[in-house]
């Protein structure tokens, strides 16, 4: 088999996979511009007969999705900041120090991921109430941080391990400002790892809906994911799929952008975290 034939085969396979994988998402966009009655046609119209952009304006302005997107952003970015900030020193410690029970600790950190999220809702509500953090973003951010820390620590730890000790050492011997030099060396090197960790954290926070639903009590604080449920199962009209998918499409744009822009970061980030050559 010649190389050209081989890469042609790869392109065909990849194109087929790309179409199959992307289709449902494209279909969502198509459904989001269909008027309600067109959603119930068979055969379905692949290209909408009538473009109903009203779905988008309805979702954005009448249903308040715009406000929800901003709230989601605050939650996701807040979690990201806290989670990365806390995992950075923890991961460094786990990568560069030897101490008793390190493996156990690493496993224990992973084990906190083993509890089903549903079950934690009531006790978490209880904790937040005692800390007077019900109905605040701070409370939610703390919970999300606890949930995203394990993975972030694992990713960043791999990163720090890949940075040779000598590199850190030599930068310190230079004599200039000590802490600055550590950050100057370690941060840029860990940046891809932070990027990867950030993406996971962002996504997990962005799509969660059960926690904000339970912990928040003002509608103007609701993130996008909770707002979306407003369109589901209206007891009178049923689910308005056109508007729902329009809202969903709007909420997808930020995540899509982040993935598209940061994907290289992400792939590099996991590389060092995962494999040690």
């Amino acid at each position: 088999m010649t190389n050209r034939k081989k890469s042609l085969g790869i392109y065909i396979l990849m194109s087929a996979a790309a179409i199959a994988i992307a289709f449902p998402v494209l279909w969502m966009f198509i459904m989001s511009v269909k008027p309600a009655d067109e959603l119930y046609l068979f055969p379905p119209t692949i290209w909408p007969d009538k473009w109903e952009f009203g779905n988008y304006t309805k979702a954005l302005f009448e249903a308040g999705i715009d406000n929800g997107l901003i709230n989601s952003l605050i939650l996701a970015v807040g979690t990201l900041a806290l989670s990365v900030t806390l995992s950075f020193p923890a991961a460094y410690a786990l990568a560069k120090y030897e101490f008793k029970g390190k493996t156990i600790l690493l496993l224990a950190i992973l084990a906190t991921q083993l509890i089903p999220g549903m079950a934690a809702i009531v006790p978490l509500f209880d904790i937040l109430q005692r800390m007077h953090l019900v109905n605040t973003y701070t409370g939610l951010i703390l919970i999300y941080t606890a949930r995203t820390l394990p993975l972030n620590i694992w990713i960043l730890k791999g990163f720090f391990q890949s940075i040779p000790n000598e590199l850190i050492e030599s930068s310190m011997v230079d004599g200039s400002s000590k802490i600055a030099s550590l950050y100057r060396v370690a941060l840029p090197l860990a940046l891809p790892g932070i990027g990867a960790a950030a993406m996971f954290t962002f996504m997990q926070t962005w799509i969660d809906f059960i926690l904000p639903l339970t912990m928040l009590f003002n509608e103007d604080k609701f993130p996008f994911s909770v707002m979306l449920y407003k369109f589901v199962g209206d007891p009178i009209m049923g689910t308005n799929y056109g508007v729902l998918f329009a809202a969903a499409a709007l909420g997808t744009i930020p995540t899509l952008l982040i993935f598209a822009l940061l994907q290289r970061f992400f792939v590099q980030g996991l590389t060092a975290g995962g494999v040690k050559g």
């Binding site: 790309a18 998402v25 809906f209 979306l228 899509l256």
Partner: peptide, 20 residues
């Protein structure tokens, strides 16, 4: 980017797309 598309959606949206 094409392969990543599904991951940008939430569980609810994924479910509703497949339901349709």
């Amino acid at each position: 980017t094409a392969f990543i598309l599904p991951y940008t959606l939430s569980e609810l949206v994924v479910s509703l797309i497949w339901l349709q």
